[in-house]
């Protein structure tokens, strides 16, 4: 026994206890972080249920009784002139759904084209896609606005929806997915059975790529729903009927007349709640998707 000690050192007698203490401390730290993550949202909901005078009188940690009244103020009152929640939902949904479908369909198509066929510029086009992946919108936006102004597409939804067809990052992701889980033999088998190329893509490749498409659709949806920059540079005429939800939130911030803080909180809450509810149901896929995107080695 003593010989063993000489060779291997003293046994770690309190190893388990140490681990337990460490786990407990970390648990507390995680709980604190969780509270920090949720506190602003909690304060939002709490304040949305108080009247404006209540809010200015002190700090509240429990829900009040003004939830319904604040809701009514936001939905029906004068606020509709610049914050029209349901119209905002509608506009954001139209833009987001269209661009989301275009993004995943055409990205899958481009990735499929590059992956399956052999043609001269195959590798070159993929390299171009990788290179342009990093160009931020801010860089092209000045020229974009000038160009849209010239061809008269300002204040329309077209420049917000059609560019979604070209999403380099999504193409990159789809191609990586196809490399690992889309054997080319299937395409050949389909050809022997007399299946056309386009049909092979739609009825064989797309169903096989469902997991990748689902993840990318979720991310495209969130990105487009949260987008504030592009809509506010294209929709410049200040027409509330056309505005997307984030733009209405901005109108909320820049209005001088609104002093009802309870209603303001309520309006912010209305702009946040749909996406949070969606997240609660889809969080598993979203987190798996982020993890997948991170492994690029």
């Amino acid at each position: 026994m003593s010989k063993m000690n000489k060779v291997y050192g003293e046994p770690k007698s309190n190893y388990t206890a140490k681990l337990k203490i460490k786990s407990a401390i970390l648990f507390v730290w995680f709980v604190i972080l969780t509270i920090i993550c949720l506190l602003p949202l909690y304060m939002l909901i709490i304040n949305a249920s108080h009247s404006s005078s209540d809010i200015s009188n002190g700090l509240h940690l429990l829900p009040g009784k003004f939830f319904g009244i604040n809701f009514k103020t936001v939905v029906s009152g004068e606020m509709k002139l610049y914050f029209d929640a349901f119209n905002g939902y509608k506009n954001s949904l139209i833009i987001t759904c269209c661009s989301c479908i275009l993004t995943v369909f055409f990205s899958a198509m481009t990735a499929y084209g590059i992956h399956v066929y052999d043609f001269k510029i195959k590798e070159a086009s993929y390299t171009v896609i990788l290179l342009v992946m990093m160009i931020p919108v801010q860089v092209t936006s000045a020229g974009f606005v000038a160009f849209m102004n010239k061809i008269g597409l300002l204040n329309s939804y077209i420049p917000l929806i059609i560019p979604a067809i070209a999403a380099p990052a999504v193409v990159y992701f789809m191609r990586s997915y196809m490399k690992s889980s889309f054997p080319l033999d299937i395409v050949e088998a389909a050809r022997i059975d007399g299946c056309g190329e386009y049909r092979t893509f739609v009825s064989i490749a797309i169903p096989m790529m469902k997991p990748a498409i689902a993840v990318q659709a979720i991310f495209a949806f969130i990105a487009s729903w949260n987008n504030f920059y592009t809509p506010s540079m294209i929709l410049v005429d200040g027409n509330t009927k056309k505005k997307t939800l984030p733009m209405m939130v901005q109108a909320l911030q820049s209005s001088d007349t609104l002093n009802d803080n309870g209603a303001k909180y309520m309006a912010i809450a209305l702009s946040i709640i749909p996406i949070v509810i969606a997240y609660v149901f889809l969080s598993r896929f979203i987190i798996a998707g982020v993890a997948l995107g991170g492994v690029k080695e």
Binding site: Y117, D118, F144, A146, P163, E197
Partner: peptide
């Protein structure tokens, strides 16, 4: 099947040219 390859990547590059590459050049 090379022509299908071009056909499949065409929409991407067409839209990319009009809504991103040309605006980039236009910015310059």
């Amino acid at each position: 099947y090379a022509k299908y390859g071009y056909l499949f990547i065409l929409p991407f590059f067409l839209v990319y040219f009009f809504f991103q590459l040309w605006p980039l050049i236009n910015t310059f």
